[in-house]
C-alpha cells in the first residue's frame, strides 16, 4: 500500500474535509504545490482555488474549493486553514477604519444614547423603589 498523509481542511465556521491522501495539490501563493507524505515542514498562504486530494481508495481526485487561507505541512499532516471571508490587507484596513469610525461616532453621539440609557436606568430604579414601597405598605397593613 502506498504511503499516506493526513489531510484536514477546516474553516472557522465548519470542518470541510478530514481524511487520508496519497498526495495533495494546493494553490499556494507562489504557485501550486504538490505534497507527498513526509514533505518537509512548510507554511504558506494560499490563493483562492481548488485543492486536489487523491484518496488512497479511490481512482479520481477530490476537488475542494478554498477561498484562500493558510497551508501548514508537517511530515505526516497537512492542515489547510480556509478563510470564510474575502480578505486582503486593504480590505482589512478598511474594515478596521470603519469599526473605529463607528465607535468614535457613537462616543460623540453619546449624549443621546447615554441620555436614553440613563433614563432607562433611572426608570428601572424608580420602578424597583415603587415595588419596594408597595411591599412595605402591604406588610404594614
Amino acid at each position: 500500500m502506498a504511503m499516506t498523509i493526513h489531510v484536514d481542511i477546516v474553516s472557522a465556521e465548519a470542518s470541510i474535509y478530514s481524511g487520508l491522501a496519497e498526495f495533495v495539490v494546493v494553490p499556494a501563493e507562489m504557485g501550486e504545490v504538490g505534497i507527498y507524505p513526509r514533505h518537509a515542514p512548510m507554511i504558506t498562504r494560499i490563493k483562492p482555488g481548488s485543492v486536489r486530494i487523491k484518496a488512497p481508495d479511490r481512482e479520481e481526485e477530490d476537488l475542494i474549493f478554498v477561498s484562500g487561507g493558510i497551508l501548514e505541512v508537517q511530515p505526516g499532516v497537512v492542515t489547510i486553514l480556509s478563510d470564510t471571508a474575502i480578505r486582503g490587507a486593504d480590505l482589512d484596513e478598511a474594515r478596521a477604519l470603519e469599526a473605529k469610525r463607528a465607535a468614535e461616532e457613537a462616543m460623540r453621539d453619546r449624549s443621546s444614547a447615554m441620555d436614553y440609557a440613563k433614563a432607562q436606568a433611572e426608570l428601572a430604579e424608580a420602578i424597583a423603589q415603587l415595588a419596594a414601597i408597595q411591599k412595605l405598605r402591604k406588610k404594614g397593613r
Binding site: A12, E13, T84, D92, A96, A99
Partner: peptide, 22 residues
C-alpha cells in the same frame, strides 16, 4: 475604541475582522 452590535443569531467572522484589527 471600537464596537460591534447587531450580530444576529449567526456569528460571522467577516464582521469581527474590523473591530479585532483595531
Amino acid at each position: 475604541v471600537s464596537h460591534l452590535t447587531g450580530l444576529g443569531d449567526t456569528p460571522h467572522l467577516e464582521k469581527l475582522i474590523g473591530p479585532v484589527q483595531v
